[in-house]
Nucleic acid binder design. Structure first.
Lengths: 129, 129
DNA sequence: TTTCGTTATGTTCAAAAAAACATATTGCAA
DNA sequence: TTGCAATATGTTTTTTTGAACATAACGAAA
């Protein structure tokens, strides 16, 4: 929340986005894709993950593939065929990267809180309404 | 830089974007627009600012207008006509907001450094190459 | 009262991103 | 040996975004 009711910046919020990219500035993984990895880990299926996150299978699959191509290694081990049609699970690298990202995100959020508070205190301060 | 040569994540970089938005998630001001404000403050002209930043006047003007509409107050005091055709300068609010954002950005950058380092140390650590 | 450079704004074109559609492949189990 | 459900991909359509184009209004100074 930006400030108190009546503040000049009452309806203003500070947001941020984090992502990994390569030197050519091509996006590798951001919040959305990490969430997808998390859901694959949880459900054991790319399709279920996509369905649960309300994105098309086509898009989910393409996102994972692109990330893997840019990284140069596999994040998701995929199997097709079989009685259930197939399944997916995170590779060791995928598990580790996801865990590291979760921690990163937490540290980030934590760190941002006081900075944000300082910012809104400053722009909402008296004489500025 | 992500890590040392040979690291698994050598060509991976962490980036982030900061911006202000309202409750409806409409973007108000981000890095680009703040840079525009800064250039207007410096040059005293929206046109000069746009030219210097290599964006069209049309776009620069629209960006400022949208930000002002969402905020509900003026960021840039614009005058047209006159011997020089017109001029623009930041309002008191504009000056204050820009200053606060500059400080915010600095705090943010500072705070992010060690978090980033920790992240890459983790994912690049031995046994993970 | 004409000129000039800037602000002001509608409109149209082009490019990029995302969504939608369509179809093939795989391999266990019945 | 057929059916099934999930993975694998190419193609087309739609949406979004941004760039480009065009043109009006303004007002001090010459």
């Amino acid at each position: 929340m930006a400030g108190s009711i009546g503040d000049k910046y009452y309806d203003v919020f500070l947001k941020y986005r984090l992502w990994l990219c390569n030197q050519s500035d091509e996006g590798i993984l951001g919040d959305g894709r990490f969430e997808l990895l998390r859901e694959i880990e949880r459900t054991g299926s790319l399709k279920s993950a996509a369905d649960n996150l309300n994105i098309s299978y086509r898009k989910a699959w393409g996102n994972i593939k692109q990330a893997e191509e840019l990284l140069g290694f596999t994040l998701v081990i995929k199997q097709r065929g079989g009685k259930d049609g197939g399944s997916s699970q995170l590779s060791t690298e995928g598990v580790q990267l996801l865990a590291a990202y979760d921690e990163l995100r937490e540290d980030f959020d934590q760190s941002i809180k006081k900075i944000t508070k300082k910012f809104f205190n400053k722009i909402n301060k008296n004489g500025n309404k």
